[in-house]
Amino acid sequence: MDQSATAITLTNARMIVPGGVCEGWLRADRGRIVSLDAGEAPPHGGGEVVNARGRWVVPGAVDMHIHGGAGAAFTDADPERAMRIVEFNRARGVTTLLGGLVTATPSDTLKQVAALTELCDAGELAGIYLEGPYIAKSKCGAHDPALLREPDPAEFDRILKAGRGHVRMVTVAPELPGALELIRLAVDSGVVAAIGHTEADYDQARAAFDAGATVATHLYNQMRPLHHRDPGPIAAALNDERVTVELINDGVHVHPGAAALVFASAGSDRVALITDAMSATGLEDGEYTLGKLRVVVEGGRAVVAETGTIASSTIVLPDAVRRTVHDLPGVGIEAAVHSAAATPARALGLDSAGLDAGVGSLKVGNRADLALLGRDLAVEAVLHNGAWVHRS
């Protein structure tokens, strides 16, 4: 087969690239971005040529915190069901994601990690994310409080071994006994440590960041609130240049005014838009499960049936990008796209270093993951690993 048949050239594109906007062309070949420049496209070098007609061309989104979609959950411990989530998101412009797990029994967690490891080995998932079990009962949210436990290095080591190097991030409440030691163990093992679901005060959060934690899990939600005499983990995260702050901008979890404050304080280089999405994403309202808990979805808003606590979201990441551009004063498309792609990719170490090809930005050498946006920033086409996975 002629290798040029794998090549795709986009012309007349408005591309969001590192440092700004480039109006011109991009060429992908054998799964990689091989050239990108302003102006008219170079002489035709074979393969497919697509006229972007001045549409936005943006890097594929990177969702570092997601639990499910299309009726499936990563906690199902079923690679086929997990692939349903991957394919559902991929067709909507989310070309990189972690398999997010919630608090479960030790044995169930090991089964779930083992199942997701298969997809990590195959390159379908970028890693595994553990939200719990080492979080505060008073801030458990949609986690089963009966299954929460104190940080346990021996258990964590068993999880790491089951993950065969694919556990990429873990959330810990830093005020728990042994939390700082577990954060150090995670970092030493190549795992990104995050703080969240926490009652930590300002100094305890700072201690966690000094121990190596570099992410704040869904800022504002399920953590000690910001107060001018008790600033807590929110101020500690926003004040620390080492920390990436996750933000669920779905119109439910965080008020637009509070979300805009995060961007104004930390900037798009440190704000990672996430979904925290559950299995109901893409489906009608009704009753679902998150882990072992019953969740009711009405009008797209998901809450735990027994407590009324907000339980995950039902959006895909490009929805958060559109909402950010439309609803947050002073945050334009470049910043929103950066927070949905480059920032989470960097926070997870997926941007380039040590990889076959980086993700999260349109630059030569990176994986050819991108989306074409149409009216109202709707995703019209998606390229993943140099091949079309969606074209409207």
Rank of each mutant, 00 (worst) to 15 (best):
H166T: 06
A200D: 07
V303Y: 07
R84Y: 02
A154V: 02
H166P: 09
L226W: 06
G267N: 03
T95I: 04
G196D: 05
I234T: 09
V304Q: 01
E246L: 14
L355W: 07
T214M: 05
A213G: 02
I159K: 07
A272T: 08
D269H: 05
A72K: 04
G299F: 00
P145K: 13
A52I: 02
A340G: 05
V34Y: 07
A264E: 15
H390V: 03
L185M: 08
A154C: 04
T244V: 05
V382F: 01
R391G: 11
A162P: 02
I8L: 15
P79T: 07
I135F: 11
G300N: 10
A381S: 06
Y129R: 06
H67C: 05
V50W: 11
A193G: 13
I128E: 07
R224L: 15
D203I: 14
Y134T: 12
V337D: 02
A335I: 13
D29R: 11
M64G: 01
H390E: 03
R322A: 03
V34N: 14
T103H: 06
A186K: 00
V86F: 05
Q222M: 15
R301D: 12
A28R: 04
L247D: 02
D285E: 00
L180V: 02
D376I: 04
A91H: 04
L110C: 01
V17W: 05
A266R: 06
P106A: 08
G360L: 00
D376S: 08
P344T: 04
R14G: 14
A207P: 01
A115S: 05
L119F: 11
E287F: 09
D201E: 11
F263G: 15
T244R: 02
T171V: 06
A345R: 12
D230R: 14
E380G: 11
H67L: 02
A387W: 04
R92L: 06
A41P: 02
I85Q: 11
L293N: 04
T75Q: 11
V337Y: 01
T275G: 11
G60S: 01
G360T: 00
A371F: 03
G308F: 06
V243L: 05
A320I: 06
T6P: 13
S392A: 15
A277Y: 13
N366G: 13
Q3S: 15
L247G: 03
R84K: 12
A340S: 10
I33W: 04
D376L: 08
A194F: 09
D152M: 04
